[in-house]
Measured scan of single mutants.
Amino acid sequence: MVIEDPKTNKLIEVEKLPDGTYKVTIYDKKTGEKKTITMSKKDLEKLLKAL
């Protein structure tokens, strides 16, 4: 799943891993910076609600 946040000009890509956690990659379209973090479903839901 890919989500675009027009306010921050970032793309957020979410991928479910076999162990039940989620790999979240955040791309900054302005700088080209890429950050990848792994989080639980509960933390991911908090992140998505904040957008």
Score class of each variant (00 low, 15 high):
Asp5Ala: 01
Lys34Val: 10
Pro18Thr: 13
Ser40His: 12
Glu13Ser: 08
Glu15Leu: 05
Leu47Trp: 13
Lys10Ala: 10
Ser40Tyr: 06
Ile26Asn: 05
Asp19Gly: 08
Pro6Glu: 11
Met39Gly: 06
Leu47Asp: 00
Pro18Arg: 05
Glu4Tyr: 05
Ile26Leu: 04
Ile12Glu: 09
Lys49Phe: 05
Lys35Glu: 06
Tyr22Ala: 08
Thr8Glu: 11
Glu33Pro: 01
Met39Asn: 01
Tyr22Ser: 07
Asp28Asn: 05
Lys46Cys: 15
Val14Asn: 01
Ile12Pro: 02
Asn9Thr: 09
Gly32Asp: 12
Glu4Phe: 06
Asp28Arg: 00
Val2Leu: 02
Ser40Thr: 15
Asp43His: 06
Glu13Phe: 04
Tyr27Val: 09
Lys46Thr: 14
Val2Glu: 14
Val2Lys: 01
Glu33Thr: 07
Lys29His: 14
Glu15Asn: 08
Ile26Thr: 07
Glu13Pro: 00
Thr21Ile: 14
Val24Glu: 00
Asp19His: 09
Glu15Tyr: 11
Thr36Cys: 14
Thr25Ser: 06
Thr38His: 12
Asp28Val: 01
Ile26Gln: 12
Met39Lys: 04
Pro18Asp: 09
Ser40Ala: 09
Thr36Met: 08
Thr36Leu: 08
Thr36Trp: 06
Lys16Glu: 06
Thr25Phe: 04
Ile37Met: 08
Thr8Val: 09
Ile37His: 11
Ile26Pro: 00
Lys42Leu: 15
Thr38Trp: 07
Leu17Gly: 11
Lys41Trp: 08
Lys34Ile: 12
Gly20Cys: 15
Ile12Thr: 08
Asp43Phe: 02
Thr31Val: 05
Lys34Phe: 12
Glu45Gln: 03
Gly32Leu: 09
Leu44Thr: 02
Val14Trp: 14
Thr31Met: 03
Val2Met: 02
Lys49Asp: 15
Ile26His: 10
Tyr22His: 04
Lys10Tyr: 13
Lys30Ala: 09
Leu51Lys: 00
Lys35Asn: 09
Met1Ala: 13
Ile37Glu: 13
Thr25Lys: 07
Glu13Lys: 05
Lys35Thr: 12
Leu51Pro: 05
Gly32Pro: 02
Gly32Thr: 07
Ile3Asp: 11
Val24Asp: 00
Val2Pro: 11
Leu44Cys: 05
Asn9Glu: 09
Val14Pro: 01
Glu33Cys: 11
Lys49His: 12
Leu47His: 02
Lys46Tyr: 11
Val24Ser: 01
Pro18Gln: 12
Lys30Thr: 15
Asp43Tyr: 03
Glu4Thr: 02
Met39Asp: 00
Thr38Lys: 08
Tyr22Gly: 03
Gly32Val: 00
Glu4Ala: 01
Leu48Asn: 02
Asp5Ile: 03
Val2Thr: 09
Lys7Pro: 08
Leu47Asn: 00
Gly32Lys: 13
Met39Trp: 02
Glu4Val: 01
Thr31Leu: 05
Thr8Tyr: 10
Lys41Glu: 15
Lys10Leu: 05
Met39Cys: 09
Gly32Arg: 00
Thr21Phe: 05
Glu13Asp: 02
Gly20Thr: 07
Asp5Gly: 00
Ile37Ser: 13
Lys35Pro: 01
